[in-house]
Amino acid sequence: MSARAPVIEFAGVGRTYPGPPPVPALRPADLVIRRGEYVTVVGPSGSGKSTFLNVAGLLDRPSEGVYRLDGIDTATLNERDRTALRGRRIGFVFQSFHLLPHRSSMENVMLSLLYTGAKRKERRARALETLERVGLGHRAHAPAGRLSGGERQRVAIARALVNRPSLLLCDEPTGNLDTTTARTVLALIDELHADGFTVLVVTHDPGVASRGERAVVIRDGVLRETDPASLTAEAVQAVQDAQAVQVAQAVQVAQTVHEEQTVHQAQSRCVR
């Protein structure tokens, strides 16, 4: 595994939002993600997930450290080259899909090739091929606005894939989906990983995070690598906690109802 080339190399990369007061949203961190790996980043709200994702996705510059993407030191790039690197090497999948509702699935996927200089014919062919890959070949000409949530996210994934990026960067890819749909989308991501894509999923959901080969927990801006299996336990615990709360509530409701009924019966008896 270590023989594979690194895609992401963080050497002391940190991001502090200038104040006042300055917010150290991402503490200096070292992290290497190699080609073909499936890494998840998990953390509670406000822990710095989005900050991490923006830096990794070249949407934001780190305030310290050296970030190499595909071996290229991103600090040396001007805005034009950063944009090119972002467009050609990173495929984004967003929680809110970001599809153009009036354009067809195919056109949405082709958007990814719009700025690469690919020929139009090639764009169409590749978009269609990629839509078929995510199982939406039959919806290629449907306007994105008419698709279901799961379909939308699959179109978005196709859009991220069509460029054959070095890195698939997913920000809460199931955040807007119900459990069943989320499962199909996660299964698709698993498949893409199996196909050899390098996948980085950022999520607050330990259940989602546990599907990665590697998992990184982020808390108060600090990255700490962990065993994905431990997250499953955490997830189960979380579910159990939630269930326990629900059971307690249910019991309480039942008791209230029972009491009310008793009172009611007593009253009706009095009336007679």
Binding site: T83, R86, G87, H98, L100, L114, Y115, T116, R159
Partner: peptide
């Protein structure tokens, strides 16, 4: 949409 296009490589 503008943000999306920027993420797709639009300057």
């Amino acid at each position: 949409e503008i943000g999306l296009r920027r993420s797709l490589g639009a300057r």
